[in-house]
C-alpha cells in the first residue's frame, strides 16, 4: 500500500510538471534578452519595460478587467433574480424547463454562441463595440450564477419566509433580510465564476467585437499569429502573479466553508 501511494505521488508530480511547464517556459523567457523562446541569452528586464510603456496593451488590460467586473456584476444581479424565480415555481416540470433553458449556453460550444450572437446583433442593427461584447459576456455568465445560487435557496429553510411574512415583513424586507443572506455564498461564487468566464473568453469576443474594442485574449491571439514577441511573455508573468493573488484571496475567503464541507466552493467546476 505504501509503495502504491509513493508511485501515485510521482505520477501526480509528473502531471503537475506537465501542467506548469508551458507557463514556466513563458515566464523563463520573459527575462531573456534574445528574440525567441529557444535560447536564453542574458537576463534582462527589457521586455517588462516595453510592456509598461505599451499604453495600448495596458489600456486593453484595464478594459478587459473593467469588462469582467461590469459583466460579472450585471450577470450576478440577473442570475440571482433568475434563481429566486426558478425556486418559486410551483411545478417541478416548470422548474425543469427553465433549468434546461438556463443550461443551453453552458453546454453550447463557444463558436456557436459567438456566431449566433453575431447574427443576433446584426439582425437587430446593434453596433459591434464595447456594448455588444458586454452584452455577450453578461449573457454567457448568467447561467453559472443561477447554478451557483439555486442550491443555496434549496437548502434554505422556507418556513423562515412564511414566519417573516406572518410577522408582517414586506416582500422587499423578506428579499433583503432573508433571501439575500441565505444566497450570499452562492452569489459570491457565482460572481467569481462570472469573472473567470469573462476573463477567459476568447471565441465569443472574437466574433462579436468590432474594430474599436478588443480584449486581452483577442489581442494575444492576433499578436501570436504574427510570431513570438517576448513582450507577451512578460505579460504572462504579470497575469500569472495576478491569478495567484486572486486564488489566494479566494482561498482565504472560502476557507471556512471549505473546512466544513471539504470542497472549494465554486472553484471545483
Amino acid at each position: 500500500m505504501n509503495k502504491h501511494t509513493w508511485l501515485g505521488k510521482i505520477y501526480l508530480w509528473l502531471v503537475l510538471i506537465l501542467l506548469y511547464l508551458p507557463i514556466g517556459y513563458l515566464i523563463f523567457y520573459s527575462f531573456s534578452s534574445g528574440r525567441n523562446m529557444n535560447h536564453f541569452k542574458q537576463f534582462t528586464w527589457l521586455h517588462y519595460q516595453t510592456l509598461f510603456q505599451d499604453n495600448r496593451l495596458l489600456a486593453i488590460f484595464l478594459q478587459t478587467i473593467l469588462l469582467a467586473l461590469l459583466s460579472g456584476l450585471i450577470a450576478t444581479a440577473i442570475g440571482t433574480t433568475g434563481a429566486v424565480m426558478i425556486d418559486r415555481l410551483q411545478q417541478k416540470r416548470q422548474q425543469k424547463v427553465f433549468l434546461a433553458l438556463n443550461n443551453v449556453l453552458m453546454v453550447s460550444p463557444d463558436v456557436i454562441i459567438g456566431a449566433s450572437f453575431l447574427i443576433f446583433f446584426t439582425a437587430l442593427g446593434i453596433q459591434l463595440n464595447f456594448g455588444s461584447v458586454l452584452i455577450s459576456h453578461v449573457a454567457f455568465s448568467i447561467p453559472i450564477v443561477v447554478l451557483m445560487v439555486l442550491p443555496k435557496l434549496k437548502e434554505m429553510d422556507h418556513t423562515l419566509v412564511d414566519a417573516a411574512s406572518d410577522l408582517g415583513a414586506s416582500p422587499r424586507q423578506i428579499f433583503s433580510r432573508i433571501l439575500i443572506p441565505a444566497m450570499m455564498p452562492g452569489i459570491a461564487a457565482g460572481f467569481f465564476m462570472a469573472l473567470t468566464y469573462s476573463l477567459d473568453d476568447f471565441a465569443v469576443t472574437f466574433f462579436v467585437t468590432g474594430n474599436g474594442f478588443t480584449t486581452l485574449s483577442v489581442e494575444i491571439y492576433s499578436r501570436a499569429r504574427q510570431g513570438i514577441d517576448l513582450e507577451i511573455n512578460a505579460l504572462s508573468t504579470i497575469i500569472f502573479l495576478f491569478v495567484l493573488v486572486l486564488v489566494f484571496i479566494y482561498y482565504l475567503l472560502t476557507t471556512r466553508r471549505f473546512k466544513k464541507n471539504g470542497k472549494i466552493g465554486g472553484v471545483i467546476k
Binding site: 501542467l19 508551458p22 507557463i23 485574449s217 505579460l235 497575469i239
Partner: peptide, 23 residues
C-alpha cells in the same frame, strides 16, 4: 493538490497556446 491542478486553467488559454509555439 486540487488547487494546484485547477490553477493553470485560470491562465488565459491563448497564453498557453502561445507557449507551445515556442516549445
Amino acid at each position: 493538490w486540487l488547487l494546484l491542478i485547477i490553477l493553470p486553467t485560470w491562465i488565459n488559454l491563448l497564453l498557453k497556446a502561445y507557449a507551445f509555439i515556442g516549445i
